Amino acid sequence: MDRLCRSLPSKSHRDLWKRKVEQVAEEAESLKQSLDKHSLRNQKRLMEAKERAELLGRANGQSHVLRIFNEEEQAMQSCRNSARMLEEASSTGETILSAMSGSRERLKKAHRKALDVLNTVGLSNSVLRLIERRHRVDNWIKYAGMVLTLVIVFIIWRRS
Rank of each mutant, 00 (worst) to 15 (best):
R45A: 12
L4A: 15
S124W: 03
N139A: 13
D36S: 08
E71Y: 02
K32A: 07
E94A: 08
Q74F: 07
H111R: 08
E71G: 00
L31S: 02
D36F: 01
R6Y: 04
H64D: 11
Q62E: 13
A59V: 14
L130K: 15
A99L: 07
H38S: 11
Q43P: 01
S90N: 02
T120G: 07
L4S: 15
G93H: 01
D138L: 10
L107V: 05
E73C: 04
K18E: 14
R106I: 04
R52Y: 14
W140T: 00
Q77M: 12
H135E: 14
A89Y: 04
K18C: 10
R106M: 08
L46M: 09
E48W: 07
E51T: 07
S63Y: 06
K32C: 01
R3D: 15
M85A: 15
L123T: 06
S34H: 02
E87H: 08
S39E: 03
G93Y: 08
E29S: 06
R80T: 11
E94L: 00
A59Y: 13
S39K: 02
E27R: 11
Q23R: 14
E48R: 08
V65A: 12
H111N: 07
R67L: 09
S98M: 02
R129E: 15
Q23N: 15
I131F: 15
E88H: 09
M47E: 14
T120Y: 10
A25D: 09
W17D: 01
G57W: 06
N60H: 11
G61P: 07
E94P: 00
Q74D: 10
Q33S: 06
K11W: 06
Q74M: 10
K18V: 07
V21H: 05
N60Y: 13
Q77G: 04
L86V: 09
K20T: 05
H64R: 03
L46R: 04
R14G: 09
L107N: 06
E73P: 00
R58N: 15
S124C: 05
N42W: 01
D116V: 02
W140M: 08
A99S: 04
S7W: 02
D138I: 01
V121H: 05
R6T: 12
S10F: 12
V117E: 15
R80I: 13
S126F: 04
R134T: 06
H64N: 10
E48N: 08
S103W: 06
L86R: 13
K37L: 09
V137W: 03
E88P: 00
Q23P: 00
A114H: 05
E51I: 03
A53S: 06
